[in-house]
Every structure is written in C-alpha cells, then in structure tokens.
Amino acid sequence: MSRAKPADDSPEKPDGLRLRARLRALYHGSSVTAVRFRLAVLIIDLIIIAFFVAAPLLREGGVIFYIIDYVIAALLAADLAARAWAYSDMRDWLKKPIVWVDLFILATLLFPAWLFNLGFLRVLRLWTLINSDFFWRTIGRRYDDTRVEEVTKAIVALVTFIFVATGFVYTSFMGRYEGISGYIDALYFTVTSLTTTGYGDILLPGVWGRIVSIVIMLVGVTLFVRLGQTLLRPHKVRHPCDRCGLQVHEPDAVHCKACGNLLCIPDEGA
C-alpha cells in the first residue's frame, strides 16, 4: 500500500515579496522578458523627455497640456515606486543623487502651479537616464565601461545643459526683454553664448543678464572641452589590475604601468 506524500509545510511567499521578486527580475534580470520590459520603459522615457524638451512650445495647449503633464507624472511615479521596491536597500537607493533629481522632476509635474518656473529642469531626466545603470544594462550592455559610454555621456551632458540653460533664459527673460520673444530666441542666445560666438544681436539686460551669460559661456566651454578630450584622447580598456587595482590600461598592454603586474586583457576583436 503506497504511502501518502507528506504535505508541503513550506509557507508561501506573501504577495508583497512575490511582487518585489518579480520587479527585481524585470529591472535587474537578464532574461529576454526583462530586457524587453526595460526596452519598453526606455522608449517611454525617451518620449517623455521629448515632451519635456518641446513643453515650452506646447504649453499653449491649455487643458490638454496639463492632462498630458499629469499622465506623465503618474508614469514617472509608478516607475520610481517600482524601482524603489525592486532595490534591495531603500536607504541606499535614496542616497543616489540621480534619484533625488527624478523626485524633483516628479514634483514639478505634480505641482505645476507652484513649480511652474522650474519646469525647465525636467530636461535633467535625459542626464539621469543616460547616467543610470538601468540604461547601460539594457541598451549598452556591450558598450558598458567603454569609450562609447564616455562619449555618449559627454554629448548628453552638453545637450542637457543647452536645453536647461535655454529653459532658464526663456523663463527668466521672456516678456521682460524684447530680444527674447520666444523659445527659439532663448535657444539661439544660449548656443551663441556657449560657443562664444556672440553675434551681439541678442543681449540679456542688466547685471543679472551678464552673470547668466558668463555662466553659460564658462560651463559651455568646459563641456565642449570635455567632449573633445573624450573624442581625441587615446582609447583605453577597463581591466582592473589584480595587484594594485588600476582600472584602465591600453588595449595592447601586457604589464600594468603602475606596478608591473602581468595582465591578461581579453581581445574583444577575437
């Protein structure tokens, strides 16, 4: 006579833990489903960023604009909540500066009446996206810690600054000075200032205007120099030395230049 199998006394996972495991698998896993999920999230993120860039031109849409604004706020809030729940340590997650930038962007979406003049900072979402591990684990897995990543981050930093500075000039001087009659004028002034071209057809008035112009020129030149250095400096690969910990070496290096330890750098072209 066959014996009955003993009942499985192992407790089932609570719904919250099962949801957390599922979110962690989607946000941090390497399965086909996880990669497709993250690609969908990134596509939505890029569409939202495009809306942020075009927002000054679309603001005349009235009620429709604010409906879209609150829909984006709901999407961003859901994404942030899911990432927080999927992260192993909430306190460690909150220590990340990128997280606080995203939380501030969410605040500008939820309270547009009070934070209307800071709406131009939403473009910082582009910078936080490209500087996140989430992006490089999904789109740039083969380019992570490579020259492609460095160049991409340098370009995005420059583009983000251009649109943030343009938004600031537009918000601060539109309607107060006849030279800035629209968003395109603010963009034109920003580009001519940070490239130090300075045609002189648009000048910001007063001491405050001169300070803004100086800041745009200094930061713009710095970002251009950084981009140039990233493009022109010799290519190096990331391969930590197991003796001294030096992180980057020449692609054909045989010995560590810091301690002389023998290296074995994989040949990516093989």
Score class of each variant (00 low, 15 high):
D242Q: 14
A81Q: 04
S88I: 09
I211D: 06
V191P: 00
P6T: 07
Y170N: 06
F111H: 10
V207D: 11
P56V: 02
I180C: 05
G269C: 02
I43M: 14
A154P: 02
D133H: 06
W208K: 14
F120A: 06
N261P: 01
D15H: 10
V254N: 03
S88F: 12
A186G: 04
L58G: 02
L246V: 09
K5S: 11
P240E: 12
D133L: 05
L223G: 01
H255V: 15
D252F: 14
M217N: 11
E60K: 12
D92F: 09
F168C: 02
A84V: 08
M90L: 14
G245P: 01
G200W: 04
G62L: 03
P11G: 13
T192I: 11
F37N: 05
T33E: 13
V101T: 03
V123W: 02
G167H: 05
G206Q: 03
I202Q: 00
I180N: 01
L158N: 12
R147N: 08
H28N: 15
V219E: 07
L126H: 02
D252Y: 07
I139N: 10
L110A: 08
T222D: 09
S172N: 04
P14G: 10
R226K: 13
G182W: 05
D252W: 09
L262C: 00
V156E: 07
A82I: 05
P205S: 03
Y87H: 08
Y70M: 12
A25N: 05
D201T: 10
D9S: 13
A40G: 15
L46P: 03
C256F: 08
V41H: 11
R125P: 07
R233V: 03
A113H: 14
D8V: 12
A7Q: 14
F104M: 09
A55D: 02
G260C: 07
V215S: 10
G167N: 02
K5M: 09
A55R: 00
V191L: 15
K257L: 14
L80K: 00
A258M: 15
F161W: 10
V148C: 09
S10D: 09
I72Y: 02
K95Q: 13
H255I: 13
S31E: 06
H249G: 01
S31K: 03
L115F: 09
V101F: 03
N131P: 02
T222F: 15
Y188W: 10
A21F: 04
R24N: 13
R238V: 11
E150M: 08
A4N: 07
F134A: 06
P251R: 04
A113W: 15
